[in-house]
Design a protein around this nucleic acid. Structure first.
Length: 934
RNA sequence: GGAGGGGUAGCAAAGCCUGGUCAAAUGCGCAGGACUUAGGAUCCUGUCCCGAAGGGGUUCGUGGGUUCAAAUCCCACCCCCUCCACCA
């Protein structure tokens, strides 16, 4: 049995399933089960991480099929948005990084890559690859319902969704800040930027310093208005170009570049170039303190950051202090460094102290950046104000107060900046923040909508359970979600055709679309108008109704509501919550979804998978190496659903050896017939355990406790078999094999089929064409024997003890082994201890009172102490002396083999002679004294 | 800043909700042995410390508390990870 064979087996069964069309369900009388997993975005081949969600969904699908339901598990492709454009462009530009990823990580041939410069081709290439992968891993997907979100039929459906939302007043138009590239005239996301930086937008205040003489303002952007009281001067950089601009009837001076960037969000008019040098040395008014402070030059000021003018707070800002020290003597003299706030750790002038301590002299010293961050963090959290009017106030409070006051007095305005800037687009253009005027939103903040959504959530099953509060929180917290973009694949926004509906908004109710996708794909999209969807999805009658509409309506009514939605855990905050919101907005309660299953990530040998680590394992590669079933097992069942599961070679290899073991068992025992089954102890015990596990696994499947299942059917059963084979001279495994082939079927369907076929006619389970289509096995409860399992446990413990004693006694082949069962009074002591477990102090009292204990007085104390000390072992103890002796007699033969002894003698402590009396005292219930006679 | 998850033996990872059967499953690693031409294959044994009779001692981030009993419950602290929206 090698890998090659596993792959062959996979393909054989996938072909047969496909030919038999067992995954293409139609509405019928049977109870249905409808589930979906997030459709993939085809901009890369799948890796094993993607496979986790789908595998779990597939296990749910297959399990439900096996418990008799009509299961629908469809799949489509999410082709919405811009990343795919950016990718195609990079390929066209021969971007070496991109080409390397395609070649090295994705394993695509160079000649093939060159053909992928068209976004559509790229989409089709990857979606084909993904589809192949999903087939190759054996998902029970109904491919007849496949669609792409950019095709005309689907976009009509999304259009309908937005018309419905709009009629309920859930859509709004407003302005909105977005990261923006002016040169390319588009919004940018992480995938559009150099180095894949995710742009973060942050609001800061622009403070206006007035220069009276020429009547102009110098605006400075700052995170820290709380340091305004300690501002000693402002900086401009004579090496950059400054311009005069007009903003709300104020004349202002700022860097030309900064003005151009800010013009995307403010109504700025750039008037003319100005000579910045002439302002150096002039005084401006600090709008908070009303002090007059000078304008000086500094090299560190950048033209693209903020306004290109900077306020100087040398006590708290390392850059400012260094720049100040670099000034001419007579300028430096004008400045008196003051402090705005203090912290315990750094005192009142941390910038001065740290710069001096580190002996920093140059304005471009990289350490300045670190120091700035360090001081900012400490002061923002722990700072206490020193400045007058704010003394004793927390700096975070003062910051807000000062901000408010500046805004009120029109001495400042709020602007957006890129907090992690500067950010450049892939083409190298600098990015800024633009206020998009005609941005459309879905307004998730409506109270009644939120309430309805919560009601839906209450009635849903969430797996894992602990995510429920997370959903509740998200429902409360969601406000407005921008739902349009200016570019990208997708559906044109019906109320502004220049806009496209973005990806998280066009994927909230598509589960409904699957129910009819296989029918509508043969129609002209034009036919899919509002009336059509109203009829199919909402049951609103129409005089234009066509016959095929009823077919659609029937499918929808049969399959809806959705029984299970599968996704990754990180989509709780957006997609999964939107999914609930939009369903409740559009449909009445009976169509609201019933369950969400969200799983954690897959890591690769303990590390997060990422392109930059280069540790992405493409699914196809893994499948070729290990076969479908081992990959399915590894990604789905090696960790609980809410914990990240690690894909490591050693785990998969380990699983492989087990799998091979089971195949060997199959070959060796499949020829057995029921008449071969013996009624010996070992066999009874083995089947008692098996049927108990069958029963337990059913519940585990219901609750998706996949790790438990894997543990039981793959590891524990393996151990059980090994033990069984050792202890039973004529083991019978035929029955096991039949049950096992179905138990593993949802997780490892190919192996299941292979077993099922090789077993031929079944004696214990239902006969059927496929394992996949047969009924999940029911445990034979008559074979579950708790007493027997208890005995087994007793025996195991005893053997362990014996082996240890034997080792210590150094008697290799004892003539005789004497087993002394504890005296009856010791069992009674246990009872008393159990009864007085809450008040152990009373135990001795009670024991001393008992008359029958008197003759054991000498060791009563020792025995009781021992029992109390090991109370944990005796808490549920229910053996009595006779029963223990009975057990021992039954096990006599086995004990002989275990001890390698010729003779076993079993006696009660009460009957023991003087010779062994001392040892006998050591005996305890379930722990007989054992004496080796050499 | 907000929200969530987590810290268990050399490593990985169960156990924690529902306290006792926990010196703590399982896998890997390591050591010794068996088989073998050989072994990276398989099997057995061991793997916190001490111990020539099944025992004793000390452990589950740190420090307290509750309890007859704490890895498990409560409180405080330290550390690590993830997510925070217009991006699929």
């Amino acid at each position: 049995m090698n890998e090659f064979n596993l792959v062959q087996i996979d393909k054989k069964w996938q072909k047969r399933w496909q030919e038999a069309k067992i995954f293409e369900p139609k509405p019928e009388k049977k109870e249905k089960f409808y589930l979906t997993a997030a459709y993939p975005y085809p901009n890369s081949p799948q890796h094993i991480g993607h496979a986790r969600t789908y595998t779990i969904a597939d296990i749910v699908a297959r399990f439900n099929k096996m418990i008799g339901k009509n299961v629908l598990f469809p799949m489509a492709f999410h082709v919405t948005g811009t990343p795919i454009f950016a990718m195609a462009k990079r390929i066209e530009d021969n971007d070496p990084e991109m080409i390397e990823i395609f070649e090295k990580i994705y394993g695509i041939e160079k000649s093939k890559i060159k053909q992928l410069t068209d976004p559509k081709k790229l989409v089709l290439y990857f979606s084909d690859e993904i589809e192949k992968g999903m087939k190759r891993i054996g998902y029970s997907i109904d491919w007849t319902r496949k669609f792409y979100t950019f095709d005309g039929h689907y976009t009509k459906f999304i259009e309908w969704q937005f018309i419905k939302l709009n009629k309920q007043g859930l859509l709004e138009k407003a302005s909105h800040p977005v990261p923006w590239c002016i040169a390319e005239n588009q919004a940018i996301g992480a995938h559009d930027t150099k180095g894949d930086v995710d742009p973060e937008i942050e609001q800061v205040i622009l403070v206006f310093f007035y220069e009276e003489e020429s009547g102009v303002y110098f605006p400075t952007a700052t995170y820290r208005p709380d340091t305004l009281p300690a501002t000693t001067n402002i900086w401009i950089n004579p090496q950059i170009e400054y311009v005069l601009v007009e903003y709300e009837n104020k004349k202002m001076i700022m860097a030309k570049k900064a003005a151009e960037l800010l013009a995307e969000q403010l109504e700025l008019k750039i008037l003319q170039k100005v000579d910045a040098l002439k302002y150096i040395g002039k005084k401006v008014l600090n709008p908070l303190t009303k002090e007059k402070i000078p304008i000086f030059r500094a090299k560190f000021v950048k033209e693209e950051v903020g306004s290109g003018v900077v306020m100087s707070v040398p006590a708290h800002a390392p850059y400012d202090y260094v720049a100040l020290k670099n000034l001419k003597e007579e300028e430096f003299k004008q400045v008196k460094i003051v402090s705005a706030l203090k912290t315990e750790e750094y005192g009142s002038c941390p910038a001065v102290d740290l710069v001096e301590k580190n002996k920093i002299e140059q304005e471009d010293d990289p350490r300045l950046e670190e120091l700035t961050k360090e001081i900012y963090q400490k002061e923002a959290h722990q700072g206490i104000m020193l400045a007058k009017d704010f003394e004793g106030m927390k700096s975070s409070v003062a910051k807000e107060k000062i901000k408010e006051q500046l805004l009120k007095d029109k001495n400042g305005i709020l602007i957006y900046i890129l907090a992690n800037g500067p950010i450049y687009s892939r083409a190298g253009n600098i990015c800024t923040v633009k206020i998009v005027k005609d941005q459309w939103f879905i307004n998730y903040s409506k109270k009644d909508w939120k309430e309805k959504t919560k009601l839906a959530l209450e009635n849903m099953k969430i797996i894992p359970q602990k995510l429920r509060p997370e959903f509740e929180y998200t429902i409360d917290w969601l406000e407005k979600k921008a739902c349009t973009r200016s570019k990208g694949f997708g559906t044109k926004y019906p109320f502004d055709k220049s806009q496209v509906i973005e990806a998280l908004s066009d994927s909230t109710i598509y589960m409904a679309y699957y129910t009819i996708s296989h029918i509508v794909k043969n129609k002209d999209p034009k036919e899919l108008d509002e009336e059509f969807f109203d009829y199919v999805f909402l049951g609103i009658n129409s005089k234009n109704k066509k016959k095929w509409w009823d077919e659609c309506r029937e499918e929808f009514e049969y399959w809806y509501p959705l029984d299970s939605r599968h996704s990754a855990i990180d989509l709780v905050h957006n997609h999964l919550t939107f999914f609930i919101f939009n369903h409740v907005a559009i449909w009445p309660k009976k169509y609201w979804p019933k369950q969400i299953v969200a799983n954690a990530l897959v890591t690769m040998e303990g590390k997060k998978m990422s392109k930059s680590f280069g540790n992405i394992l493409p699914l196809i590669k893994a499948l070729d190496k290990y076969g479908a079933d081992l990959v399915r097992l590894a990604v789905s069942s090696t960790a609980e659903i809410d914990a990240s599961s690690d894909f490591s070679e050693s785990i998969v290899e380990g699983a492989k050896t087990r799998l091979i073991f089971f195949y060997e068992i199959l070959e060796k025992y499949r020829g057995q017939k029921p008449k071969d089954k013996k009624e010996d102890l070992a066999t009874k015990l083995f089947y008692s355990k098996l049927h108990r596990k069958i029963e337990e696994c059913y519940l585990h499947y219901q609750n998706l406790e996949l790790k438990q299942i894997a543990q039981k059917i793959f590891y524990e059963m393996y151990n059980d078999i090994e033990k069984y084979l050792k202890t039973c001279p004529s083991p019978y495994l035929r029955e096991f094999l039949e049950y096992w082939s179905l138990l593993i079927c949802p997780i490892m369907p190919h192996t299941a089929e292979e077993f099922f076929e090789k077993l031929g006619e079944k004696y214990y389970i239902e006969n059927s064409e496929f394992a996949t289509t047969s009924t999940y096995p029911k445990a034979d409860k008559k074979q579950i024997n708790a007493e027997l399992e208890k005995k087994e446990e007793y025996f195991q413990n005893l053997i362990e003890d014996i082996q240890q004693i034997k080792k210590l006694s150094k008697i290799e082949n004892p003539k005789k082994v004497i087993v002394i069962v504890a005296g009856n009074y010791k069992y009674k002591i246990i009872k008393i201890v159990q009864e007085n477990i809450q008040e152990q102090k009373k135990v001795f009292e009670k024991i001393l009172k008992e008359k029958e204990f008197e003759k054991y007085k000498s060791n009563l104390f020792v025995v009781t102490n021992k029992i109390m000390k090991n109370i944990s072992q005796y808490i549920n103890f229910d053996l009595n002396q006779n029963k223990e002796i009975e057990y021992l007699k039954e096990l006599k033969e086995q004990l002989k083999t275990a001890c390698l002894a010729e003779m076993i003698e079993i006696i009660k402590e009460e009957e023991v002679g003087v010779e062994f009396a001392k040892k006998a005292i050591n005996s305890l219930p379930a722990k007989p004294a054992i004496i080796f006679v050499g």
